[in-house]
């Protein structure tokens, strides 16, 4: 049977995944700390019907061969860790990371998770936690009678406590960096986990060794660019359409072949 049917089918498959990814990006256009994903395509292997460069019976060399490709496939879905825009919230526990790095949190399973969605809260014990209640690592506890909290760009957290003239230093928020952030596993809930591909995290103070700095009272918005996603959506949809046309054409050819003998 004609290969074109399956070849165009792989093209449709790939575009379907592409649309899935675009849809997820668009759904997260207002998710703080969200990083957009990008689908990366490759062509599939080729079937060589005649190799270029071989000698023909008359002693000539075949200048070009016949290669027939088998369509396209998805090579990778890459997270694009570009900086998102900042939004001022004036909330004293909202922080935005300006530059590279992730906050480290302890997940309920005891494993470490990494996030850039830093809309932090206080739990009943005064511990600083994420919106899902995961504690920061290293953990910082805010005393009960605190009036205001200040977070310096270098990560130092200090609190102004009632009846004390000097602010009290509570600890330091550390940032984790990865050799290959695109290799992190997305866990949902704006969390990422370490994998073999991402390499081990290197934690340290913000502002040191290429780590970003912290900005109190701001949140990092999603880095999804709606215009870009819309263009990708149009292109993806049209590519899907043209692939379906190729399937139709191949189908018509088969139909004609079947109709030779009436």
């Amino acid at each position: 049977m004609i290969r074109a049917l399956w070849t165009a089918g792989t093209g449709m498959n790939v575009q379907q995944v592409n649309l899935d990814i675009i849809a997820n990006n668009i759904a997260n256009v207002n998710t703080n700390g969200f990083k957009r994903s990008r689908a990366d395509f490759q062509d599939l292997m080729y079937q060589t019907l005649r190799l270029q460069g071989i000698k023909t019976g008359e002693g000539n060399q075949v200048p070009t061969g016949i290669e027939i490709g088998h369509g396209a496939m998805l090579a990778a879905v890459q997270k694009v860790f570009m900086q998102g825009d900042f939004q001022e919230t004036q909330n004293e526990l909202d922080i935005a990371i300006e530059g590279n790095g992730f906050l480290t949190v302890i997940m309920p399973t005891g494993e470490k998770g990494y996030t850039r969605s830093c809309s932090l809260k206080r739990d009943s014990d005064g511990k600083i936690v994420t919106s899902d209640g995961y504690a920061l690592e290293p953990s910082i506890t805010i005393p009960n009678n605190t009036i205001s909290i200040s977070i310096r760009p270098n990560g130092t957290v200090s609190a102004k406590i009632a009846n004390q003239s000097e602010p009290q230093q509570l600890g330091t928020i550390e940032l984790a960096m990865f050799p290959n952030p695109s290799g992190l596993k997305s866990m949902g809930k704006s969390l990422y986990m370490e994998t073999d591909a991402s390499g081990s995290p290197i934690t340290g103070k913000p502002g040191e060794d290429g780590r970003g700095t912290l900005l109190q009272g701001f949140l990092e918005m999603s880095n999804v660019n709606v215009m870009q996603e819309m263009i990708n959506l149009i292109v993806g949809q049209r590519a899907y359409e043209v692939n379906s046309k190729a399937i139709q054409a191949a189908d018509e050819m088969l139909q004609m072949a079947n109709n030779v003998r009436r």
Binding site: L5, A8, I66, A246
Partner: peptide, 16 residues
Amino acid sequence: ERRMEMVANNIANSLT
């Protein structure tokens, strides 16, 4: 048919 297969492969890779 081979020609059609090539066209289909090009179309499948129109965004590669």
